[in-house]
Amino acid sequence: MDHFKKELLAIVTGVTLWAYPAFAATQLQPGEWQTTETGTENGKPVPPAVEKECMTAEEARDATGLVNEMKKAMTGQGAQCQTADIQQNGDTVTYTLKCAMEKQFIFNISGTYTLQSPTRYAGRMKSEITMMGQKTTADKAIEAVRIGDCKK
Rank of each mutant, 00 (worst) to 15 (best):
V93A: 12
M132L: 07
G133N: 12
V50Y: 03
V46Q: 08
Y113S: 01
H3T: 07
C54P: 06
N68Y: 09
Q27I: 07
T137D: 03
R120F: 11
A73P: 03
E53R: 08
G43S: 03
W18T: 05
K98F: 10
E41C: 02
Q27R: 04
A22H: 02
A22D: 10
K52N: 06
T130K: 13
T56G: 01
T26Q: 08
T130H: 01
A100N: 15
D62L: 02
I147H: 13
M131N: 06
F4M: 13
E53L: 08
T137F: 02
D62N: 13
A122L: 09
C99E: 06
A144W: 04
Q34F: 10
E37I: 15
Q87D: 14
D85F: 11
N42K: 00
E51Y: 08
G65M: 03
A73Y: 05
A63N: 10
G90E: 14
T13W: 03
M1L: 03
S127K: 02
G78P: 11
K152C: 06
E58R: 08
I142Y: 03
T136C: 01
A138Q: 03
L115R: 11
G14P: 05
F105I: 04
A138F: 06
C150G: 12
M70L: 15
D139Y: 05
G111F: 10
G133T: 11
A22Q: 06
A25F: 00
K44P: 03
A144V: 10
K140W: 13
F105R: 00
R124D: 08
V50P: 07
Q88T: 12
Y20T: 02
K5G: 00
T75M: 13
Q134F: 13
T112C: 04
T40R: 04
K151D: 13
L28M: 13
T83N: 09
A25K: 07
S117G: 11
K135I: 00
Q134G: 05
D139L: 08
A144N: 08
M1S: 02
S110H: 08
Q104K: 14
